[in-house]
């Protein structure tokens, strides 16, 4: 019983300190907004009827504070990006028309972010089918959720996590008619049927990013943003399943930069969870195979020659 009490006290401390840790990282100004926007319901005082009222929050305007804090913009105040006029409630209708900042507004022309080449990303994006179809209306936030954005490709230790994070971005529209129709009049592709030609479809979807086949791969850019028209997507298996796999310049450049630079092979992938037929050629195994086959053929040839000579 004594231990149970201790456990109970300990659990309270952990829970309480955890709550404090999350809360403490949120700026005070943001807490005001999140009082409503972090919950499914919100209350306000209605001056007209002079009463407190409770309403359902629009699900698209609910912020997951845990995800927000763990994202790269987690330390931001709401008013860093949104108008401070949102402070009053009901919010003014015109605020909905407020133009929001794009990634380039903050990240462009800043040496701090030079490594990420935001300007080049913008250039590439402007060649993409997304830009071609929707123009400026297709903002970065259509794919990158600025509230929760985390640099998974730079921090993840598994290719699977990178693939899943990246593909979820594409699927958020391409597998969601409602969101898809905010930029297109179409119904959105039937992904399974469109990819019918792909062997082991499910396995490909889990191991390769959509962008690995649907973008113009540029080795010097971390993530290619030039999404091609579907008619130009890669359909050649050899493109990835070969020693000179295109994936080296895309998906596998994150975790395996060092090994690619040293031997040009996908050698270190064997410590990863992925295996690509044709691309993971083990140099030692290749040499051993050639030597073994060579010696066998030579041995047989010598045996045959001796048999023919001795017969005479």
């Amino acid at each position: 019983m004594r231990y149970f009490k201790l456990l109970l006290i300990f659990s309270f401390i952990v829970l309480f300190s955890g709550e404090e840790a999350i809360g403490s990282t949120l700026p005070e100004e943001s807490r005001q907004c999140l009082k409503c926007h972090a919950n499914q319901t919100y209350s306000y005082y209605n001056d007209w009827i002079e009463a407190e009222q409770k309403r359902m929050m629009n699900p698209f305007y609910i912020i997951d504070t845990t995800l927000f804090i763990s994202g790269v913009h987690g330390g931001f105040k709401c008013f860093d990006c949104h108008s401070s006029d949102y402070e009053t409630y009901p919010h003014e209708a015109e605020l909905k028309l407020e133009p929001l900042s794009t990634c380039i507004d903050c990240h462009g022309g800043d040496d701090t972010y030079a490594d990420f080449q935001f300007e080049r990303i913008e250039e590439e994006f402007q060649k993409s089918v997304h830009y071609e179809m929707a123009g400026e209306a297709f903002s970065c936030s259509k794919c990158h959720n600025q509230h929760y954005y985390t640099p998974v490709t730079r921090t993840s230790h598994t290719v699977g996590a990178i693939v899943s994070y990246s593909n979820d971005m594409c699927l958020s529209c391409h597998d969601n008619t409602l969101k898809y129709q905010t930029v297109s009049a179409g119904q959105g592709p039937q992904l399974k049927q469109v990819h019918d030609w792909l062997p082991s479809q499910e396995r490909h979807f889990k191991s390769v990013r959509c962008i690995d086949c649907h973008t113009v791969v540029i080795d010097s850019l971390m993530v290619s943003h030039n999404i091609m028209n579907k008619s130009e997507a890669l359909r050649d298996c050899n493109g990835c399943h070969s020693s000179n796999s295109l994936l080296k310049a895309s998906l596998y450049k994150y975790e395996n930069l060092q090994s690619r630079a040293s031997d040009g092979s996908l050698g270190s992938v064997f410590t990863n969870e992925a295996y690509i037929i044709g691309a993971n050629q083990n140099p030692l195994m290749k040499l051993f195979s050639l030597l073994l086959i060579g010696f066998t053929v030579l041995g047989i040839a010598a045996h045959w020659v001796l048999r023919v000579l001795k017969k005479k």
Binding site: Y275, N280, M285, I293, I300, W304
Partner: peptide
């Protein structure tokens, strides 16, 4: 250990395939 199970399986599969290929050549001869 630190190796990918699927890679080691593929390596073993390929190595056995190679031995059977060698067997086939000698068998035919």
């Amino acid at each position: 250990y630190s190796f990918s199970g699927i890679y080691l399986t593929a390596l073993l599969h390929g190595a056995i395939g190679l031995f059977i290929f060698i067997f086939l050549i000698i068998h035919l001869y």
